[in-house]
Each structure stands twice: as C-alpha cells, then as structure tokens.
Design a protein around this nucleic acid. Structure first.
Lengths: 152, 152
DNA sequence: TTAGATGCAAAGACTTTGCGCACTT
DNA sequence: AAGTGCGCAAAGTCTTTGCATCTAA
C-alpha cells in the first residue's frame, strides 16, 4: 500500500529531477489531484486548491498543469465541448462522449487495439486513445431520438 | 453531371422545405461552400463570403451554419485544437489529427466499422466517425520524437 | 404586414501572457 | 544572490447573444 504522502513525494521528486522548484502552489495542486482521483477541469482544480490555500490564481493552475504534463505527472483530455480535464498519469483510458447530452463514458482500452494497429500500418499514425474523446450518441439519447423520429 | 447552379438550387430547396427564408447571405454561404469543396473554418468562410458580399458579419455566418446544419446541409467537425471546420454534408469521413503538429488526415471510414460494432454492442454507443478527429501522432512527428529521445 | 434574418457590439467560456514582486535554491 | 515562479490583470481565440433594423414571403 502506497500512502498519499509517498505519492506526493514521488511527484515532488519528479519536479526536482526536472530542475523545477517545489513551491507551495505545486504541492497544493499535486495534493488535490491525488485526493480527487478523478477528472478535474482547471476550474474545479482551482476551486479545490483555493480551499487549501487562498490566493492561488487560475493562471498559476494552468502553468503548473502545463509543467506537470511536460514532466509526465499529469495528462489532460478533451471530453465533450467544454473545458479540458486533467488527472494524474498512469490510468489512461479511452473516453466516449455523447454529442447530444455531453455524457462521458470510460471504456476499456482494448477496444481500440485493432484500430490502432490498422491506423499504424495504413498511415503510420500512432493512435492516442486517451487524449480526445470518441464522439457519438449514447444509449439513452439514441432511444430518445428514435422515439422522437419514428419514421427514419 | 450536376452543375453548380443545380447544387445551389438543391440547397435552397431544402431551406424552403424547412420553412426558412432564402436570403442573400445564405446564397453566399452556400455558394462559398460549394466552390471551396473542402473544410473551412467559420472565419475562412467569412473571408470568402465577404469577397462576394461586403457586410456579412461573422455572427450571421455562425447563425447560417447552425441552420444549415440543423437542416442537414452541412456538418462540422473538430480537428486539432483550433476552430471547428464546416463542409457540405454527404462526404463524411474520419479524421486523424496529430497532437504534435496539428496535421490532419482524412481516412477511409471502413477502418472504424469494427470499433463501431464493438462500442454499440458493449455500451449501446453509436460511434460518430466524423464529428471529432481521432487524436494521435503522425508519421513524421513520431520519427522526430524517436530521434530526439533515442533511449525510450 | 409581420415573423424571421441581419449587423453590430458586447458578452461568454476557456486559456495564455506580460509584468513586477516574492520565494526557492 | 540569482532566477524561477507567482498573483493580478489584460489579452486572445472561438463562439454566442441582445437588440434595433431590415427584408423575404
């Protein structure tokens, strides 16, 4: 079992190895990410960070997230239309997002294995399953649409 | 062979059937879309439209595109990071976009058939291959990355 | 005639940037 | 002491909206 403190220290170690400074704001951002353990928009992260330390500006949040991402500490993803979401690296998964209602669904990555191989061999393209959500229509919205437009 | 005028008239007919008014601005937008025959951002469309008729505001462009989309005349897609792109409906295809350089690649839709079936049967999710580009790394950027970071 | 369409300007959502001071190293 | 990082405010990008005017039907 890895404690929260140990995970925080791992992050701070990565920062030091990257020749970055360990600041109060970075500790707060790292702590919030560890505690939340889910997707957070920059704004949600900002709100949670402010509870722990007033006067953290959102520009600082964005700068810290950018730095964390360049060091491989976090990744971000674009789900539906709204703001990007961030979370700790290491649990990348694919997302489906419904164009109608905006709901998002995390799905097992293996569904994309065959597609990834095909795109690589046909186009030299390396699929990133995590970064951008796959768009479509979710189960409930499809049912609604079918009821509303029974002719098609 | 369908002439440009005939295609324009088809669009105007769809407008009338939708109980919408046929205005000068809509004619211009339709003409630009027909002539361009490629992806255009709202801003590119705006610039091309202004050549044909001064004083078309970009809000009008957005409103017309929204109307055209609701009538099935155009579709829009989100490629990399930037603005959405619009084009006439009927030639939907999948897009790959490179997270590094922003290049986009149109690919045959059949690559996504198997994935579409799997997502539908596993999650009831209806894949929309066209709306959002699939993200990843293109051939050239991958090669550059490998040269830059030969250790991994 | 009259409901819908347009132009203009302003607002809105999300993110980035410039600048001078504070804090880490 | 040196220089990175921070807060604040402003700017930037893309898109939507309010409102008065105009116009297609």
């Amino acid at each position: 079992m890895v404690t929260a403190d140990e995970r925080l220290n791992e992050i701070l170690t990565v920062l030091r190895r990257g020749a970055k400074r360990v600041t109060a704001a970075k500790r707060v951002v790292a702590t919030v990410l560890l505690e939340a353990d889910r997707h957070l928009t920059a704004e949600e992260l900002s709100i949670l960070a402010l509870r722990r330390q007033p006067d953290i500006s959102s520009s600082t949040i964005y700068r810290i997230l950018e730095e964390f991402e360049s060091l491989g500490i976090v990744v971000h993803a674009h789900l539906g239309q709204g703001a990007a979401v961030f979370h700790l690296a290491g649990s990348e998964h694919a997302h489906l997002t419904c164009d109608e209602c905006g709901a998002t669904l995390e799905v097992a990555a293996h569904h994309f294995d065959a597609l990834g191989r095909e795109l690589y061999s046909s186009y030299g393209f390396t699929l990133n399953r995590h970064h951008v959500a796959i768009s479509g229509t979710c189960d409930s919205c499809r049912e609604i649409t079918q009821k509303t437009l029974p002719n098609s």
